Amino acid sequence: EGEAHRVLFGFVPETKEELQVMPGNIVFVLKKGNDNWATVMFNGQKGLVPCNYLEPVELR
């Protein structure tokens, strides 16, 4: 579910809505907001990550 994206930079959450991710993680974007935040799914957890920390990736 969602579009696959690769994480470019590590992100440490500052609020409980945000999700910690590391460079190279593959996350699935469920929704992109107008505020430059994306709702993503990673390892069964859902949370917010900055859009500019993500790049689309083709999964084969």
Rank of each mutant, 00 (worst) to 15 (best):
K16Q: 11
N52P: 08
V40N: 04
Q20H: 13
G33F: 10
N43A: 08
L59K: 15
T15E: 06
G33H: 15
M41T: 13
K46T: 13
M22I: 09
E1W: 07
K32L: 05
P23C: 04
V40W: 03
D35H: 07
P13Y: 01
L30E: 09
K16L: 09
L59P: 15
L54T: 00
F28Y: 15
V40S: 03
G10N: 12
G10L: 08
D35R: 06
E55L: 06
G10M: 11
G2R: 05
E55Y: 07
G2S: 06
D35Y: 05
L54N: 00
V7L: 02
F11S: 08
R6I: 09
E17H: 10
W37S: 09
G33D: 14
V12M: 12
V7G: 03
V7A: 01
E58G: 14
G33N: 13
N25Q: 15
T15S: 13
M22H: 15
N25S: 11
R6N: 04
V7E: 02
F9T: 15
K32R: 11
P23R: 07
L48N: 08
P50E: 02
K31S: 14
G33Y: 11
P50L: 00
W37V: 10
L19P: 06
L8R: 12
N43Q: 13
G33M: 13
N43W: 03
G24L: 01
G44P: 00
P13C: 05
E17M: 10
R6H: 06
V12Y: 13
R6V: 09
F28H: 15
V21W: 01
L48G: 07
N43M: 07
V49F: 07
K32H: 13
E18A: 06
R6W: 00
E3C: 11
L59I: 10
P50W: 00
I26L: 09
E3S: 12
V57M: 12
E17N: 10
Q20V: 07
N43C: 06
Q20S: 12
L59M: 13
A4I: 07
L30Q: 10
F11L: 05
Q45N: 11
P56S: 08
Q20E: 13
L30F: 03
M22G: 12
E3V: 13
C51A: 12
N34A: 14
V57T: 08
F42V: 05
E1V: 11
E58W: 07
E58Y: 07
H5K: 00
T39H: 13
V29H: 05
A4Y: 12
N25G: 02
L54E: 00
H5A: 09
V49K: 04
L8C: 07
N34D: 15
E1L: 10
G10C: 08
V7M: 04
V7W: 00
E1P: 05
V29G: 02
G33I: 10
M22Q: 14
M22Y: 14
E55T: 07
Y53H: 14
N36E: 09
Q20N: 09
L59C: 15
F28S: 14
P50K: 08
G44L: 01
E58C: 12
A38N: 06
M22C: 13
N25P: 03
A38M: 04
V12K: 14
G2W: 07
N25R: 04
Y53I: 14
E18H: 12
E14R: 14
L8I: 11
I26Y: 03
V49L: 11
E17P: 08
V21E: 00
K16R: 11
I26A: 05
N34V: 13
E58L: 10
Y53W: 04
A4G: 06
E3G: 11
V12F: 12
L54A: 06
L30V: 10
K46I: 12
P56V: 03
C51Q: 06
N36D: 10
T15A: 10
W37I: 11
P56Q: 08
E1H: 08
P13I: 06
N52K: 13
R60I: 13
N25K: 05
P23K: 11
K46R: 12
H5S: 05
C51V: 15
D35I: 01
F9I: 13
K32S: 06
A38F: 03
Y53D: 00
Q20D: 07
G10W: 09
K16H: 09
N43S: 06
E55A: 10
G47T: 06
G24I: 02
F9Q: 15
I26C: 05
L8F: 00
N43D: 09
F42G: 05
E1Y: 05
F9H: 14
P23L: 02
N34F: 12
Q20T: 09
E58M: 09
P56R: 11
R6F: 05
L30K: 09
V7S: 01
P50C: 01
T15N: 13
R60M: 13
K32I: 02
V7H: 00
N52I: 05
G10S: 14
G47H: 00
G44N: 12
K46H: 06
W37E: 05
E1T: 09
E3Q: 15
G47E: 02
V7K: 02
N34Q: 15
L54G: 00
K46M: 11
E58K: 14
L30A: 06
L54I: 06
N34H: 15
G10V: 08
G24Q: 02
N25E: 13
V12I: 14
G47C: 05
H5R: 02
M22D: 12
V29R: 02
H5F: 03
L8E: 03
L8M: 10
G24Y: 00
K32E: 03
N43R: 12
E14H: 12
V12C: 12
M22L: 12
Q45L: 06
G10F: 06
M41H: 11
F28P: 04
G47Y: 02
F42N: 03
G2L: 05
G2A: 08
E3W: 09
M22K: 14
Q45A: 10
H5D: 00
G44E: 07
T39P: 02
V21A: 04
L59A: 15
M22T: 14
I26S: 03
P23T: 06
A38H: 01
L48M: 11
V21N: 07
V40P: 01
G47I: 10
Q45T: 08
R60T: 15
L19R: 02
Q20P: 09
E3M: 11
F42Q: 06
A4F: 10
E17K: 13
R60D: 14
W37T: 10
G47K: 03
